[in-house]
């Protein structure tokens, strides 16, 4: 194989367009927003980059820290549920017959091809008071009540629809629904590479299925679990559409606050500071993961 260091001209000619793309559409706009975070509003449309830290100071006030904290908790719970639900799914796909596997993967991927907004509205029609879930449950309730009357017992009390929408439960459910593929795919990738003979050995040597899962499969799939956790947690932390459309009066997450700074409050410098705080947190998370990987490599 040729080393890219010896073929610098060829490498550069290939690299120049993606690098230019990255600089023009990612680094540059982000740098401008980063500069905004050290500025202040002058009038309605001008931002004076004065190098002030007051935006960060305001972003670190207890009000916003609490919202940060709540967003982290919501994202963490979402990730945990995704892991608990996603792990058996990934296992099932791994151990399914090869001819079924592409179809099962397709079933996981399919909702992904639909716009997030449409999926969210679809979920709303399922969950709302007059939605499919409540209508089905209401029908079952009425039927049970009718049956009781038929056998001579008192009917059930009248059906009260469950509050499934416009609360924190709905936000978590919506986030899990949206982010599940992010968890399942890396888990599947990790489990698929697993050496099956290790599992057989564990079972042969007398470990039960659960013990094999926790002590053999999970440690071996750890890299997949960690990357699954990170790529689920990071977008869930920045979610704003789901809490906006499915949340109740107290379901705001940090991304909703950031959005309001750029739109309603017309305070771009403060919005920039808030979003960069979110980004610093994400960077730290990814750096920790990279550090872990390097340590693991050094050990082996």
């Amino acid at each position: 194989m040729q080393d890219w260091k010896r073929q610098k001209a060829a490498f550069a000619s290939i690299a120049v367009s993606p690098v230019a793309w990255l600089i023009a559409f990612f680094v540059l706009p982000l740098a401008i927003v980063w500069l905004y975070s050290f500025g202040r509003n002058v009038g309605l449309t001008e931002i004076d980059i004065s190098g002030t830290f007051s935006n960060y100071g305001r972003a670190l006030e207890p009000l916003y820290l609490e919202i940060f904290g709540k967003s982290v908790a919501v994202a963490a719970l979402t990730t945990l549920i995704c892991l608990i639900v996603g792990f058996p799914i990934a296992l099932a796909i791994t151990f399914a017959q090869p001819k079924w596997r592409p179809w099962m993967l397709l079933a996981i991927m399919l909702p992904f091809w639909t716009n997030l907004l449409i999926r969210t509205y679809a979920l709303i029609t399922v969950l709302r008071t007059e939605g499919y879930v409540n209508k089905s449950l209401g029908w079952l309730w009425e039927s049970a009540s009718g049956l009781k009357v038929m056998v001579g017992m008192a009917p059930l009390s009248t059906w009260e629809p469950l509050p499934l929408l416009y609360n924190n439960f709905a936000v978590i459910l919506g986030l899990v629904y949206v982010h599940l593929p992010f968890m399942v795919l890396p888990l599947y990738a990790a489990l698929d590479r697993l050496d099956r003979s290790l599992i057989e050995a564990s079972l042969d040597l007398g470990a039960g299925h659960f013990r094999t899962l926790t002590q053999i499969v999970a440690p071996l799939a750890a890299p997949g679990i960690i990357s699954g956790v990170i790529i689920t947690f990071v977008p869930a932390l920045g979610a704003y559409l789901t809490p906006d459309l499915m949340g109740g009066p107290d379901s705001q997450m940090i991304a909703n606050v950031i959005e309001r700074q750029f739109k309603r409050a017309n305070d771009w410098p403060f919005g920039a500071a808030l979003s960069f705080l979110l980004m610093y947190a994400t960077f730290i998370l990814i750096a920790l993961q990279a550090l872990r990987n390097r340590k693991a490599e050094a050990r082996s």
Binding site: L44, L63, E66, I67, K70, P249, D250, Q252, V257, R260, Q261, R264, A265, N266, D267
Partner: peptide
């Protein structure tokens, strides 16, 4: 111009 940012911040507090 003066009250608009106050409305926003107060409303963020209400929601939180």
């Amino acid at each position: 111009e003066k009250l608009q940012p106050l409305y926003e911040e107060a409303f963020t507090r209400v929601r939180a």
